[in-house]
């Protein structure tokens, strides 16, 4: 219950960290509201997996991961996650499914409705993000001690924050606007540049430490 309430209390901040990734993506796709909910579901599953990874880390390493002596490794890890997220955003911005890869498998994976990995990957990499509410959740989960309590805490936190994402797929009402699709795709590239640069800076900072 504590995790859920913490999620509810900090949902707007979590939303603020996730909307730069998910909103341009959904706009760029230009799908229906129903389809957007499916894509959001995939994004949230990815994000949940990111949280589970943190739950396990919280159980294995405890608060050690937040301590000063591990700051370098931590920054390299999160900086790399940012760079990967930027890579995925660039990939989405510039992808042309028809001629991206000659292999039939790749064509099938990247085109049509079989695009699970993209919103899932975006969700996962957004989940691996040390935003302020997440640090609070991490600290609280560590206090639980056991793996299960840590997992349940993050699951409840995830549910609490996810409620704030419910209105986002409504951008699907604008699906017929070709201009908005183009804007959404371009915006993913711009945000990709931003995350890439932030990631590089964080990694360099981590290596220096």
């Amino acid at each position: 219950m504590r995790g859920f309430l913490l999620g509810l209390a900090n949902g707007t901040i979590c939303l603020a960290y996730c909307v730069p990734v998910i909103v341009p993506y959904l706009l760029g796709e230009g799908q229906t509201v129903k389809r957007n909910y499916l894509e959001l579901g995939q994004f949230l599953i990815g994000r949940l997996l990111g949280y589970i990874i943190f739950a396990v880390l919280a159980w294995v390493f405890g608060l050690m991961i937040l301590k000063q002596n591990s700051a370098g490794t931590r920054e390299v890890f999160f900086g790399t996650a940012y760079i990967l997220l930027a890579g995925l955003l660039f990939f989405y911005c510039f992808k042309k499914p028809k001629n991206l890869c000659a292999a039939e498998y790749c064509k099938g994976l990247l085109s049509g409705h079989n695009r699970l990995f993209l919103p899932f990957g975006l969700g996962l990499l957004t989940g691996l993000n040390l935003c302020p509410p997440f640090l609070l959740a991490f600290t609280s989960a560590v206090a639980g001690g056991s793996l299960w309590s840590s997992l349940f805490f993050f699951l409840a936190f995830f549910l609490g924050t996810s409620l704030f994402f419910v209105p986002i797929p409504l951008v699907g009402f604008l699906k017929r606007n070709q201009m908005l699709r183009s804007i959404g795709k371009m915006a993913t590239g711009i945000i990709g540049i931003y995350y890439f640069y932030m990631g590089v800076l964080i990694v360099i900072g981590g290596i220096k430490q």
Binding site: P24, L27, G189, I191, Y194
Partner: peptide, 10 residues
């Protein structure tokens, strides 16, 4: 417009 969306969200 993409820059607007990007900078507002970030």
């Amino acid at each position: 417009f993409a820059v607007l969306l990007g900078v507002v969200l970030t």
